[in-house]
């Protein structure tokens, strides 16, 4: 009986930890359902820019929305001294959000000299 109890306790710990990490890692958004480019490097990111359905820009989970000006500063800090700065940014936009905010952010990225961007998709 003892080994079974040990295994069950280990399973409980696994699910508790997994639940905690799942909550902390990413802001919950309904990303566009696309297969993407199979790059598999969505985790290799310095700054993650989340766009909620209502257009609010969120940089960290549990943080309040930021303004475009504040985002400007954060992008400036994130890309300093990087050889391929656009690869250090990731945009996660809700599929139902309007492109108004997305377009504003892209203009900002372009202003900072970024020639490309990374948009997250949810693999269906």
């Amino acid at each position: 009986m003892t080994p079974m109890i040990d295994i069950i306790f280990l399973l409980i710990i696994f699910f508790m930890v997994a639940a905690e990490f799942a909550q902390q890692a990413r802001l919950e958004l309904h990303l566009p359902q696309e297969k993407g480019e199979s790059l598999n490097d969505a985790q290799n990111t310095g700054l993650v820019i989340n766009i909620r359905k209502d257009g609010a820009i969120i940089l960290e989970v549990d943080s309040p929305p930021v303004t475009i000006d504040a985002l400007d500063e954060r992008i400036k800090a994130a890309i300093t001294g990087d050889n391929a700065p656009w690869e250090s940014l990731l945009i996660r936009a809700d599929q139902d959000a309007s492109t108004t905010t997305l377009n504003e952010i892209f203009r900002l990225l372009n202003k900072h000299g970024l020639s490309a961007t990374r948009i997250a998709t949810e693999v269906p």
Binding site: I12, F15, G36, E37, L39, K111, R118, A120, E122
Partner: peptide, 27 residues
Amino acid sequence: TFLLLVYFIVTTVLPTPEDLLTPALKV
């Protein structure tokens, strides 16, 4: 213990797999 296990199995939402699209940008 079994009840706890069932609770965590049911309530845990594992992150969905994400991928990327990398368009160039021009304004």
